[in-house]
Amino acid sequence: MKLYGSNLSPFVERCIITLDVKGALDQVEHLQPEGGMHSAAHFAQNPMGKIPYLILDDGTLLIESQAIAEYFDAIFGGPTLLPDDPLERAKVQMLCRLYDTHIIRGFAPPLMALIWQRKDDAAIANAIEKDIPKAFDDLEYFIGDQGRAVGDAWTLADAALTPMLFQLEAFIKPFGIGDFGDRPKLNRWKDAVLAADIGKNAMQRMGAVLEKMMAARARAAEAAQ
């Protein structure tokens, strides 16, 4: 089966991290849409024009990173990233959703500025002063205190939230928020994740893509002169 999308996307990384924890990275081919994002080929494969998307061996298309990540968790061996206990499982899903609905929404204006080069100063100011601190407060409230998002082992919640650490350093810090401030559980979680190979691998993958993107941009700027 084939997973499409750039590691710079936190939603693609959610799926990759899931595979990494399960030791199944070699079971899924990781590709980029032919012709790049939003190309004709991209829309032909996935009418939504988004990433990640997964094409199974029989041609079935699956979209939505949480659905793909849970699918990977179900079909591959290795540690399970969704607890059996219904309440713990719900907490994992809840935290994944908090990334989708709160964190990424607060991060959007700085991300738009640096990745898509669409800078909205008012939106960025609002994100830095209000939305991001509030999102961090919400996360602090619900996140676990044992160095993992829920319980004491890797779950999909860690897979969903780990990309946030890269985004914080690369995209949010330039605008004024570089860490979680005085939020002990988030700080504990961050330290534990970044000390682990799984966390380091994610930072390395995302960093490599960002570096390539910046280099390509620099070359394009030079060529334009």
Binding site: L56, T60, L62, Y71, A74, I75, P86, L87, R89, A90, K91, Q93, M94, R97, L98, T101, F142
Partner: peptide, 26 residues
């Protein structure tokens, strides 16, 4: 518990009755 999707999945697991999450992994 917050997030209706998570609550819904939780209720499906803890309440008796037909399973609502789908049969196969796919």
């Amino acid at each position: 518990l917050v997030e209706s999707a998570a609550i819904a999945a939780y209720l499906d697991m803890v309440l008796d009755g037909p399973p609502l999450a789908g049969d196969s992994a796919e």
